[in-house]
Every structure is written in C-alpha cells, then in structure tokens.
C-alpha cells in the first residue's frame, strides 16, 4: 500500500513548490489583513490612528477601546456599551439554534423513517421556504408577531429565526437520515422501542456530524443576521449586529475607530469560537460498522 501511494502522489520540484507556497502565503496575507488591521487598531489610542499608519503596530498598547466598546460606549441614546446587546444575541441565538436543530432532526426522522402520503410535498415546501428572500416576509412577519404579542421581544426574534431555520435543518437531517439504514429502525421496533425512543436512543446518538454542521450553519446565520434584528427588535431586545451598527453610526463628535474595531471583533468572536470548538467534533465515520460496509 505504502509503495503504491507514494507513486500516486504528484511529484513537485523545488521551483513549483516555491511558487505554490508563495501564492498561498500571498492569499493568506490578503485574507488576514482586515483582521490584522482591526486587531492592531483596536489596541491603539485614538491619536495614533488619526496620526495615520493604520498598518503599524501600536506604539502604546491599550485595552481601553475594548473596555469602552463592552461597557461604556454610546449605543443609540444610552451609554451602555455592547454588553446588554451581546446578551440579547446570546439569548436569541442559543434557543433558536437548539430548537431549530431539534425540530430539524425530528422532521428528518419522520420524513425518512415514518413516511406518509404526501411527505415529499411537505419536504418540497420546506425546501421552498429556505429560498424565500428575507425581505419578502418582513411585513407579514411583523403582522404575525404583532398578533402573537411577540413584537419587539427576544422570543419574537427566536420565533422568526426558528421559522427560517427549520427548512435548512430539516434538509440537512433528512438527507443524513436517508443514508441511515431502515433496518436499524425496524430492529428497534421489534426490540420494543417506540417513535421517540428510537429517535432518542438510536437516531440522535448517531447524528453527531450532521448536528455539528447544522449548528454551525444556524449559529452563523442567526448571530450574523441584521435585517430581522433591525426590523423586529426594540431597543431592549436588539441583537449585537444592530447595536454594532448603532455604535458605529450614532457616535457624536469624534469617530472612535479603535472602539468600533473592538466592537466589531466582539461581534465576530462567537461565530469564530463555534467554528473552532464544534469543528473538533466534526468527525466523520461515526456510522461506520452499523451495517456491512
């Protein structure tokens, strides 16, 4: 085996290797440059930024912009910093992701293992729901939230993201469970497990990889959403993205770029964290060995 695989590897000479690495490094710098600019400027006093040299390292390192962005900066009319909005976002994103992932798993399970007349039409409609532009539902959704008494609240935002998220999470889980052998469900039925027992004991424990994919996708989308947050939230329920916009656009007098940069990094950190943490659990092949493969 080892012999065969060395033969199949593409042989590269020194020069081509040099070119490949140079190109890769250039791309890396290109992609990382914005992050670098944000980071170094969030650690500088404002004078240094105004003195030019956005790319240079700080002469005087300071965490003050971070503190300001977090707890004292002017957001809209109040000087609360981003902290309460960060909390709003967390309160919105965690239930929205958890519930939409669970419902998606349940839907996928029903649509593949408990099929019924018209299930493909239902799935088709859900898929269709994934592709409805956000702008189109703004006004009907506002009316619905009003009728439900959820307008301008965090639960209202959760509801909106749930409705949009279920289509995607159902798609993920349906396709994943379609590969899952029916015989496992049949075996469990004969063993005496019911609908939810099979779901909880057989399906869910084997759903790790797709759950991670679904969570990353939902978390990123919901955390980064601006439109629904701006449309349906009140001042006390606004998510991080909207607050960041207010921070940047509503500061009176001097533009505190260093504070803006610090705020922007804060807004991006949770999604980064989810990638780093959840990505580690993204292990393929959890299904290996259930059936002859």
């Amino acid at each position: 085996m080892a012999l065969a695989s060395t033969d199949t590897v593409i042989r590269t000479g020194r020069t081509s290797r040099f070119i490949i690495y140079t190109v890769l490094i250039v791309f890396c710098i290109y992609y990382l440059l914005p992050l670098y600019v944000m980071l170094v400027n969030s650690l500088k006093p404002l004078d240094e930024i105004r003195g030019g040299g956005m790319l240079s390292l700080p002469q005087e390192w300071t965490l003050a912009p971070w503190g300001s962005a977090w707890s004292t900066a002017q957001i809209g009319v109040e000087a609360t910093g981003l902290r309460p909005y960060f909390l709003n976002s967390l309160l919105m994103v965690v239930p929205a992701v958890a519930i939409s992932t669970m419902l998606g798993a349940l839907n996928g399970y029903v649509l593949t293992k408990w099929r019924f007349r018209g299930d493909t039409i239902i799935f088709g409609l859900m898929l269709f729901g994934c592709f409805i532009p956000f702008q189109m539902v703004l006004i009907p959704m506002a009316r619905m939230l009003g009728l439900m008494g959820l307008a301008g609240t965090v639960p209202g935002l959760i509801f909106v993201h749930l409705v949009y998220g279920i289509g995607f999470s159902t798609l993920y889980f349906r396709n994943y469970y379609a590969q899952f052998p029916d015989e496992l469900v049949r075996a469990a039925m004969i063993d005496g497990a019911g609908f939810f027992r099979i779901f909880q004991r057989i399906m869910l424990p084997s759903s790790g990889p797709i759950a991670v994919v679904c969570i990353i996708w939902q978390f990123t989308n919901i955390w980064n959403d601006f439109l629904f947050g701006a449309s349906f939230a009140d001042f006390d329920s606004q998510p991080m993205t909207v607050a960041l916009n207010n921070l940047v656009s509503s500061s009176t007098g001097v533009k505190e770029y260093n504070v803006h940069f610090a705020g922007a990094i804060m807004a991006a950190l949770p999604t980064l964290l989810v990638y780093v943490v959840a990505g580690r659990f993204f292990v393929r092949g959890l299904m290996a060995g259930s059936v002859k493969g």
């Binding site: 496992l184 049949r186 039925m189 299904m287 060995g289």
Partner: peptide
C-alpha cells in the same frame, strides 16, 4: 399487534446493530 408485542425476534440481512 405491534411488532414489539408479538414476542418475535428478527435477524436482519445487514445485522442492523445499533452503531452507538
């Protein structure tokens, strides 16, 4: 009668062992 209550047991072609 539900499969679970028929007092039967089945061996499947793919063995259908619970992977988890």
């Amino acid at each position: 009668v539900r499969p679970a209550d028929r007092n039967i047991a089945m061996v499947f072609q793919s063995y259908a062992l619970y992977p988890n």
